[in-house]
Simulated scan of single mutants.
Amino acid sequence: MNENTPVIETQRLILRKFTPEDVIDFFEIMSDKEVNAFLPWFPLRTVEEAMTFLTDRFLVYYSKPSAYRYAICLKEDNKPIGYVWLSEGESLDFGYGLKKEYWHKGVVTEAAKAVVKKIKDTGYPYITATHDVNNPRSGEVMKKLGMVYKYSYVEQWQPKDIPVTFRMYQLNFDGKDEKTYMEYWDKYADHFVENIGL
C-alpha cells in the first residue's frame, strides 16, 4: 500500500482507502435518500452505479501523490459506514457522509478531526466546506472542526436543478485568519452575509 492515503486510527474508527471490495457497503451509503438529501447527486440505484461512482470519486485518486478520500470504518469490522474527502482545486472543499444509523454519535466529527489534522500537518493553507441552510447539523460539524462562517450564496444545484442556499465555512492553517476564499461569492450574484452567531 502506498502512503499517499495513509491509514488513520482514532478511538473508535479506522480511516482508510476504499477498495473495489467495498462496493456493497458503499452502495448502502450512497443509495439512502436521507443520507444524500443534501448532496448534489441523486441516490444511487444499482451496485453498478455505485461501482462507477466509487471509482470516479475515490479509487482513481489513490494513484495521485496525495488523496484525502477516506472510508470511515468502525474498528470492530473495518467496513465502510461513511466517507470523508477533500476535493482538488483551489476550493479545497471538505465533505463527509455517513449512514443514518450512525448519526448523532459524533462519528463524522471524530473522523473529520483526524483527517483535518493530517491535512494541516501536510502543509495545506486552508480548507473550505459548505452546507445547505436546511442541513444545519452539517454546519455544527464544521464549527466543531474550528471552521468559521464566511458568507452565504444561492446556487442552482446540479444535477437536481434546484436553488439551494449554502453557507460557506473556512479553516485557515497558515495564521492568515482574515483570508477568505471568494470564488462562490464572485460566481453567484445572490450572495450575502448572515448574522448566524457562533
Rank of each mutant, 00 (worst) to 15 (best):
D174T: 13
E183T: 15
R167E: 12
S66A: 15
E21N: 13
D186P: 06
K79R: 14
E101W: 02
K160I: 11
C73S: 10
I72M: 00
F192N: 10
L54I: 03
L145T: 14
Y96D: 04
D177T: 14
M1Q: 09
K150A: 11
D93L: 10
W85M: 14
L13N: 03
K113Y: 07
D186C: 10
K150D: 08
G95L: 01
K144G: 13
L198A: 13
W185I: 10
I81V: 13
E48N: 15
R69Q: 07
I81R: 01
S66Q: 15
P159C: 09
N172V: 15
I119C: 08
N36I: 10
V164E: 01
K120S: 10
K17Y: 00
V164F: 02
F53A: 06
E110N: 09
R167C: 08
M142R: 05
R57V: 06
G139N: 01
V23T: 05
D77A: 14
E88D: 15
D132Q: 04
P159W: 02
F26K: 00
V47G: 03
V154D: 04
D32K: 03
Q11W: 09
K117C: 11
Y169V: 10
K79S: 11
M51P: 09
Y169E: 05
E194H: 04
R167M: 07
L44C: 10
G82L: 02
D77F: 09
D177C: 06
E183I: 12
T180N: 11
E90G: 14
K160P: 06
F58C: 10
K17A: 08
D32A: 05
V60S: 11
Y61G: 13
G89I: 02
A112G: 04
E155S: 09
V108N: 03
N172D: 15
D186L: 11
R57K: 15
L98H: 01
N78F: 02
L171F: 12
G97T: 02
K117Y: 08
S152Y: 00
M1D: 09
I81G: 01
P43I: 00
P136F: 01
E101F: 01
A50F: 01
E49I: 07
L145Y: 05
N172A: 12
D177S: 12
L198Q: 14
K160W: 07
E9R: 14
V133S: 08
K79L: 12
E140S: 11
K187Q: 12
E76T: 14
A67N: 09
E28S: 14
I119W: 05
T109C: 13
A189I: 05
R45Y: 07
P163W: 00
F94I: 09
A114Y: 00
D25W: 00
W185D: 06
D121C: 07
S138Y: 03
D32C: 07
K117D: 15
V23S: 01
V35A: 04
T165P: 03
K99G: 08
K143N: 06
N135I: 08
